[in-house]
């Protein structure tokens, strides 16, 4: 059963913020499946990449900027969005990795890497998207959350 399905876009001004998407879980649910994808992953516009990299080095390296290699060594720049999950009472984990298409299962007896297995309590849960890095002008996202009897 689909508990939530949503398509949306995020923009550079959303970088370094979280986007909470609440969803209701009923009684007797055995496991939850989160399918999340976003696109694009890589910034292909070299001019924009150069601008972002040079700004990054200027801000973070300051007077030491000359000790860093050319901007091209830092290509490609990538978008990074991670998915974290909260049950009605606690943080259930996060999948902090680069993949732009992901599927995670959380159940009583099993959880995908990054998440804690345990009882699927009824009540309001949250899928929280962590917008770590947005280097393209826009990122299109798709999130689907299903309740069911999913296997690992």
């Amino acid at each position: 059963m689909i508990l939530l399905e949503k398509e949306f876009s995020v923009y550079p001004e959303n970088e370094k913020t979280n986007m909470s998407l609440p969803f209701e879980v009923g009684e007797g649910v055995k496991s939850l499946k989160f399918t999340f994808s976003y696109s694009p992953k890589v910034l292909t516009d070299r001019k924009r990449a150069r601008l972002l990299i040079e700004r990054n080095i200027e801000k973070d390296a300051g007077e030491y900027a000359g000790e860093y290699p050319s901007w091209e060594e830092f290509l490609p720049l990538k978008n990074l969005i991670t998915l974290s999950v909260d049950d009605p009472t606690a943080y259930r984990g996060c999948a902090h990795r680069q993949a732009e298409c992901m599927e995670h299962i959380i159940s009583d007896s099993f959880a995908s890497p990054g998440f804690n297995k345990g009882a699927i309590q009824a009540g309001q849960w949250q899928a929280v998207l962590n917008l770590h890095g947005i280097v393209t002008e826009k990122i299109d996202c798709h999130l689907k959350i299903e309740a069911g009897d999913f296997l690992e």
């Binding site: 972002l52 080095i57 801000k59 973070d60 860093y68 720049l77 990538k78 990074l80 890095g133």
Partner: peptide, 13 residues
């Protein structure tokens, strides 16, 4: 503390 941060290594600085 002085790693390059976003976007090269998000939040690393």
């Amino acid at each position: 503390p002085f790693q390059l941060g976003t976007p090269i290594c998000t939040g690393g600085r």
